[in-house]
Design a protein around this nucleic acid. Structure first.
Length: 855
RNA sequence: GCCGAUGUGGUGAAAUGGUAAACACAGCGGACUUAAAAUCCGCUGGAGGGCAACCUCCUUGCGGGUUCGAGUCCCGCCAUCGGCACCA
């Protein structure tokens, strides 16, 4: 109790109280279309946070940053007459729980449940207005049933000539063979080389490999060919670029995605191999430089290497190929500074001039991009230039750069030279002409290439969604939807097998689907569950469908490309999660299951919160701030308010406990506007609080605050909204008599930010002035309207400048005309002094603002 | 190397092309108190001048430009952070 007395206001009593009230009365339950209390006349607002992975460490202060922002928006929109969908859930599959299981034998489900319970308790202690009835958990069979169901949709779909997903049954109707169909599925099996990490005992996606090491743990990663499930995201590459246009996302994030997808326009050109009946097709973005191709390079893995290598070069080529195959990605990039390669002994014929050019292999050409073969134009490509210098290959100029540039290694546009019929043409025209020429001769054609690769979708793990697939006679097939959800087997031993064989192989009974069929042993990656969770929120308890049609139409509709009105989360998901979710959404859209082409209309990335030392928070630095401690010391409202007051939401900013104290003091000042303490230390409604109208000055402060806070919340400029509330509070603090109804209005404005304090004070005021306070929750009140008339003053201060420098100010009537103001300004002794008798050249008058006299 | 973001007091920051530094933090001074904490009131970008109320000059990473007027717009640099990195 003694520590209670040190508190400036009794937040530790009323915060849990209001959390209990909200929960008991389901204050933030959001009815769905079809529910008895659903009001279809209201517009909808779907505000979403990136749901957390419930780790064993609990919340860190970064979580409540975005969550508070969305909570303020959600509460504000609710008060502004919207049906607000503001849910929370758990992205709970994933490696940490599994690794913990390996260490301790505790089942991941047990760990996950405990962590979810802890996170829930923590989030509830912050007073977020979630509709907990819509909570989702990716590891819940009722949820992943539908993740598996969506996988089956991908498995049973292909992309047609119209660029849209269609059921593969259409291909069956067209009489395509089983094999042909398998080649077109959006979920398909591939033998491609993958990133195998021996320590983790799993294959990783390219995105999970950083600098040749695993993102988790930093273990070395090798390349090895393995049978994997892939998702054909590349079929959507163009749409994933194009359909960014209609979204309200930061341009920098759109750019990040566009670059990741990496569209580039160019041409395929086919070269004959000299002496044998083979051709090699290359992809180039600079077909205009074809005359400058002095050699050709194949990726070491290119299938034609065996065919074309001459006897004399065989040994060298074999050695080089083995060396590259052994190299990890890390080594391959590390050695990138120094080019390497081997001559195959073969020559290709340049189709434009019939020149014989040597064919090399080199690991700077990647098998996974384009055709895995390039024509090398060393004069106008940096990499080819480097390679040619190292191996003393000829360098031939075919582009004339503008004055002042060396042609050697010049890669920009210029004028074609030494290029036969292209000579004299600027690069762009030369590209068109050569493309037409190639097409006419049947030697090539214009093509578009993407950097984006198909999505490696299988993992050799236990704690993930099992694939609803079985294998029989070397062929895969889906299990019937009626068998979903397919639960993972119960395992005692979670250790990786140490071979690429997934841990599910240990569940021998589970594996055996029938006498002749075995289950797929891979599981889905963590991304799977987060690809569609926002849809499940719309109708989280539906057991008939992944989301009910009416609910999806209402919450995801609204006439914009994206369904979620606001999505807040960290930049770390700028590419992968957002790209994957967009891809799945488009497939579901094409198949008619959702009503918008995009999932997220408006995206905002919150900035990282650093430690007090300005460094990234980490256990090893000892600068981690635990939100539970802040709540205990200063209360949930202070934490919420501080996180928003620190600075712009998008910005990276350091934590400051002093700053928390600052907003805490502000909240205490608000408390004392209403409450006073007697000598025993107990609080009661202050005698200064009276049922009187606010004077003109307070009314103005209040209405300015209503206006600015409303506008700032829409802009997510919470820091400036809070400073305006501070200004308003300071004005009220200075008043002898506190007008009760004005304070109630102020509390409504404060309530989205500091909901506990606002509700408590409203209740206290209601006890004294029943007619003035809100009868129920402030969150059920309407956001106050401001009176523009209250903002207008009779007089405004006008600044007088001479030659742009501030020289004097005066208060003038608002209604004063330009001429009147100018007259007052010119009459000012200070203005005259600085005019020094020089003649007036020009006078600029901005009514209500300033006068600038130019002499 | 390429792409993007950021750069304003001692600190976090604020400013539709129109009074730079609102609002806070820290600091200093005062009131209350036996005292301290808490609270309340005031001062607080830099340099110079004046007994004083005040006054002058300078100041938004650096250098140019547009404009009556630039933290804000344009051009060129520098620094920090983030992303990508042989993608032909």
């Amino acid at each position: 109790m003694s520590s209670e007395q040190r508190k400036a206001f009794p937040f530790s009593e009323f915060e849990p109280k209001w959390q209990g009230e909200w929960e008991a009365k389901k204050a933030f339950r959001t009815p769905n279309p079809g529910d008895a209390d659903f009001d279809a006349s209201k517009p909808k607002y779907f505000v979403l946070d990136m749901f957390p992975y419930p780790s064993g460490n609990g919340l860190h202060v970064g979580h409540p940053e975005g969550y508070t922002a969305t909570d303020i928006i959600g509460r504000f929109k609710k008060m502004s007459g919207f049906n607000v969908l503001h849910p929370m859930g758990w992205d709970a599959f994933g490696l940490p729980a599994e690794q913990y299981a390996i260490k301790t034998g505790t089942h991941p489900r047990v760990t996950t449940e405990a962590n979810v319970a802890n996170f829930t308790k923590q989030l509830k202690s912050l007073g977020f207005a979630y509709d907990w009835d819509r909570e989702v958990n990716t590891t819940d069979p009722g949820y992943f049933k539908w993740t598996q169901w969506i996988f089956l949709k991908l498995y049973n779909s292909y992309v047609g000539d119209d660029g849209k997903a269609h059921p593969v049954s259409e291909l069956e109707d067209q009489g395509l063979s089983r094999e042909e169909i398998d080649h077109r599925r959006l979920a398909y099996v591939s033998e491609a080389p993958v990133n195998w990490c021996p320590q983790l005992g799993t294959v990783l996606a390219n995105e999970e490999v950083v600098d040749g090491k695993s993102e988790v743990g930093g273990f070395p990663v090798e390349r090895r060919p393995m049978r994997q499930w892939m998702l054909r995201i590349t079929a959507y590459a163009q749409r994933l670029i194009d359909e960014l246009d209609g979204l309200d996302w930061p341009e920098s994030i759109k750019l990040l995605q566009r670059n990741w997808i990496g569209r580039s326009e160019g041409a395929h050109v086919t070269f004959k191999v000299d002496g044998i009946d083979e051709t090699i097709t290359v992809f180039t973005t600079r077909p205009d430089t074809l005359f400058g191709a002095t050699y050709m390079v194949l990726a070491p893995e290119h299938r034609l290497v065996d065919e074309i290598t001459t006897e004399e070069q065989l040994a060298a080529v074999e050695e080089y190929r083995e060396k590259t195959a052994r190299k990890s990605d890390l080594e391959r990039t590390e050695l990138a500074k120094e080019k390497s390669g081997v001559f195959t002994g073969a020559y290709a014929i340049n189709p434009v001039n019939n020149e014989r050019i040597p064919i090399w292999i080199a690991d700077y050409v990647l098998m996974g991009y384009g055709t895995g073969a390039i024509m090398a134009v060393p004069a106008h490509d940096e990499r080819d230039f480097e390679f040619a210098k190292k191996f003393e290959l000829p360098i031939k100029q075919v582009v004339q750069p503008p004055e002042g540039h060396d042609w050697q290694g010049y890669t920009d546009n210029g004028i074609a030279v030494n290029s036969g019929f292209l000579d004299g043409l600027p690069t762009l025209e030369a590209k068109h002409k050569i493309a037409a020429w190639l097409e006419e001769k049947g030697l090539g054609k214009g093509t578009t290439n993407f950097k984006l690769r198909d999505w490696l979708f299988s993992r050799q793990r236990y704690w993930g969604e099992p694939f609803p697939i079985v294998w029989e006679d070397g062929q895969h097939r889906s299990i019937p939807e009626s068998e979903l959800p397919l639960l993972p087997p119960t395992l005692e031993d979670f250790k990786p097998t140490g071979t690429p064989e997934p841990p599910l192989s240990k569940a021998t009974g589970w594996v055996q689907y029938s006498a002749t069929a075995k289950r797929e042993l891979n599981t889905m990656p963590q991304w799977a569950g987060s690809c569609w969770y926002y849809l499940r929120y719309c109708d989280a308890r539906n057991s008939e469908r992944f989301v009910g049609e009416a609910a999806e139409k209402y919450w995801m509709g609204g006439g914009k490309p994206g369904g979620v009105d606001l999505y807040v989360g960290g930049t770390e998901h700028a590419v992968l999660h957002l790209l994957y979710a967009r891809f799945w959404h488009k497939v579901l859209f094409d198949l008619g299951y959702v009503s918008t082409p995009e999932p997220f209309q408006r995206l905002v990335n919150q900035g990282l919160i650093l430690g007090e030392d300005g460094q990234k928070m980490s256990k090893s630095r000892g600068n981690v701030v635990n939100p539970d401690d802040v709540v205990r010391e200063y209360g949930a409202d202070a934490l919420r308010l501080y996180e928003m007051f620190m600075g712009p939401l998008e910005q990276v900013k350091p934590w400051s406990m002093k700053g928390v104290e600052g907003v805490y003091r502000f909240l205490a000042r608000v408390w004392r506007l209403v409450m006073e303490q007697n000598e025993e230390g107990s609080w009661s409604v202050s005698a200064a609080l009276q049922d009187v109208p606010a004077n003109k000055q307070l009314t103005k402060a209040l209405h300015e605050t209503i206006k600015k806070c409303g506008e700032d919340i829409e802009k997510l400029s919470f820091n400036t909204a809070i400073s305006q509330m501070m200004v308003c509070t300071n004005a009220f603090t200075g008043a002898e008599v506190k007008p009760a109804s004005a304070i109630v209005t102020f509390l409504k404005v404060l309530s989205p930010f500091a909901p506990h304090l606002a509700e408590e004070l409203n209740q206290q005021i209601r006890a004294r002035f029943p007619a003035l306070a809100a009868p129920g929750f402030l969150s059920d009140e309407t956001w106050p309207a401001y009176d523009p008339a209250a903002l207008i003053e009779d007089e405004v201060e006008v600044v007088f400048q001479v030659n742009g420098k501030l020289r004097d100010k005066a208060r003038v009537p608002v209604a004063a005309s330009k001429e009147e103001i100018e007259k007052i300004a010119l009459a000012s002794p200070r203005v005259q002094e600085f005019m020094e008798g020089r003649p007036v050249k020009k006078v600029i008058v901005v009514p209500g603002k300033l006068v600038n006299v130019v002499v």
